[in-house]
Each structure stands twice: as C-alpha cells, then as structure tokens.
C-alpha cells in the first residue's frame, strides 16, 4: 500500500500571551511538537490521545484551519503548505473532515439540504442538485424527506450522518474523523461506525480516525498511533499495538479502560495503574514529557527526550527503555 498522506516533523505552536515585566517573552503552547506519521491508501489510521494531547490540532492542521509552525504535510506527494498560496480546490475536494460535535458542526439555521448542498455548490455546481443530495442521504441511510429538516429535529446519530453525507459530497479520498462518535450513545455509535466501515469499502476511502477511546480503536483501526502532550509515543499495527504495548503511557491507558468482560480484562496490562494528570501544555516537563507520571522512570528520562525507535517492524516507540543505548528490549 502506498502512503496517501504523510506528516513529517509537524509542529504547531500557539502564542497565548506574554510574560515578563516588559511582556517580551511569549507564552507558547506546543500543541503539536514534532509529529511524523503516514496514512496509507485505504487504511484507517487511528490517532489516540487524551485531551490536551494535540490530536485534534493535527487534524485541523491537515484540513487547513492552521498553518504548521514547522514541518510539513504532503498529500499524494504534494505539500499542502506551499508558502502563502491558497490550497487548490482539487485538494480541498479530496480531504474532508467529520467533526466531533454534530450539534456544533451543523448550522442550526440551515436545512439538511442547504448543509449538504454547500460543498456541491462550490465544487460541482449543478442546476438541480436535489437528486444528488438525496443520493448522498441514502448513502448514509437517511430517508429522502430529511432534506427539509433542520438539525434540531434530528437525533445525535442522525446529525452525524448528515455531517458524513456532507463530507462525502465532493467524493473525497481522505476523510478525517475527529471523534465522530464520542458525543453519542454506544447503541448509536455502533451504527455510525459500521456505516463508516461500509462507506470506506464502497468508496475506497482512507480514514484518519481521531479518538480517545482505545476499545473503539481496536475495532476500527488498521494502525494506531498514540499521542501525549503533542508528541507521538508509539505507532504499531492495531493487532500488535494491543497485544504488545511497549510504551508505559500506552500501558497506563490500556489498564484504565473500563471493560465489560473477563476476556478483555485479560488483555489489560496489570503492572501499571494510572497516576498523575496530564500537565498543562504551557509547562511541558523536561526530557520525556511523560516522565513525571511514568512508573519506570530513569534518571535519563527527565533530561533527554527519547527518539522514535523501531523496536519491531512497523512498531515504533519513543521511550528510553527501548533506546539502542539501553540495549533495546
């Protein structure tokens, strides 16, 4: 499989204020601080992280809401950020996003028709777009008479289906799913997830699936990356990731998941339990940013930031426990 989208050394820093007597020293939040990954064609790449990890900032940078501070994102080998030049309409068509909160991503004052029509108007203007809109609604399993409804008349799951229909209106090849089901109940989540999987197969879509829910990731992603304070800690194939989690943070997260069966309980790492909290991204700890919460902390950890190391083929970890100078495994 070829890489469809690659992020290399991606950084996004936000200046949120000034400190010091003369207010000369900017206070920066390093929301994303050197992230590299590749999403392959036709796969679902899972980006997992807790709040403040910077996972959504990665999404918003890809979609073009932010300019990266450093690093680059390439789509089909073409850089998405070429100076101040505006992104071409062809690229905008190809990359779409489904936001987390359908309550906010659908304008309450516009009908379903108007909402789904907008991308068509911009990219494929037609005299009568109604048949196409109805076809899009059918794709997401909504009845045609929904065209005249306003978002507040729809349930949470239905709203998200409209948002998916809007994202698919331009026939994209790459769709970012930013926590598409975290605002929904499980029974509705299941439906949306299965719909997304079906659509992926039907239209050969590639997904960047962003979530905080590792159990969900286990069931949808082909590869998983985990983020902590703006950096990726671990990347692996999904099956490998859940079978052999290396990074202490991954283990901590996995051990924290509330599960519903004994079989799942077996899979949870036992030796690590969650402690501490994510520090404010304004004051990132020195060295490896996870070290204050890490049960396997060494002296080196607070001084030096570890590099990404490929421990097994396709399984990379950013932790001193696995650095070559520590003798790897």
């Amino acid at each position: 499989m070829t890489d469809l989208l690659t992020a290399t050394g991606l950084k996004k820093h936000f200046v949120i204020g000034q400190s010091g007597i003369l207010k000369r020293k900017p206070i920066t939040v390093k929301a994303v601080d050197g992230v590299s990954f590749a999403v392959r064609e036709g796969e679902t790449f899972g980006l997992v992280g807790e709040s403040g990890s910077g996972k959504s900032t990665v999404a918003y940078t890809i979609i073009g809401m932010y300019q990266p501070t450093e690093g680059n994102i390439a789509f089909r080998g073409q850089s998405l950020f070429q100076g101040d030049k505006k992104r071409s309409s062809a690229v905008k068509k190809e990359i779409q996003i489904v936001f987390q909160d359908p309550g906010s991503s659908l304008n309450p004052r516009r009908t379903v028709k108007q909402i789904v029509e907008l991308p068509l108007q911009i990219h494929q203007p037609e005299k009568d777009p109604l048949p196409k809109i109805v076809r899009l609604l059918e794709m997401v399993e909504l009845p045609p008479d929904y065209v005249h409804k306003y978002p507040q008349m729809l349930g949470g799951g239905e709203k998200q289906m409209v948002a998916i229909a809007r994202a698919l209106a331009t026939n994209p090849s790459f769709v970012i799913l930013d926590e598409p089901t975290s605002a929904l109940d499980v029974s509705i989540q299941a439906k949306i997830i299965n719909l997304l999987i079906r659509l992926q197969e039907e239209f050969h879509l590639s997904y960047l699936f962003i979530t905080h829910d590792l159990s969900l990731m286990r069931n949808v992603a082909s590869r998983v990356a985990i983020m902590y304070l703006g950096k990726i800690c671990e990347i692996a194939e999904a099956a490998e990731f859940f079978r052999n989690p290396y990074h202490p943070y991954t283990q901590m997260l996995l051990s924290s998941i509330p599960v519903v069966s004994a079989a799942e309980e077996e899979l949870k790492p036992k030796k690590i339990t969650s402690r501490g909290e994510i520090p404010s991204p304004v004051n990132v700890p020195s060295g490896c940013s996870f070290h204050p919460r890490c049960p396997e902390k060494m002296d080196l950890c607070s001084m030096e930031d570890p590099l990404m190391v490929e421990v097994e083929e396709g399984h990379t970890v950013r932790c001193h426990l696995f650095s070559p100078e520590q003798g790897g495994l």
Binding site: Q189, A190, R218, A239, F242, V259, A263, E264
Partner: peptide
C-alpha cells in the same frame, strides 16, 4: 466496542 476486537 471490545478490547478483544472483532468489530462491533
């Protein structure tokens, strides 16, 4: 969704 995988 289960940690054991296998879809939902």
């Amino acid at each position: 969704p289960k940690l054991t995988g296998g879809g939902i």
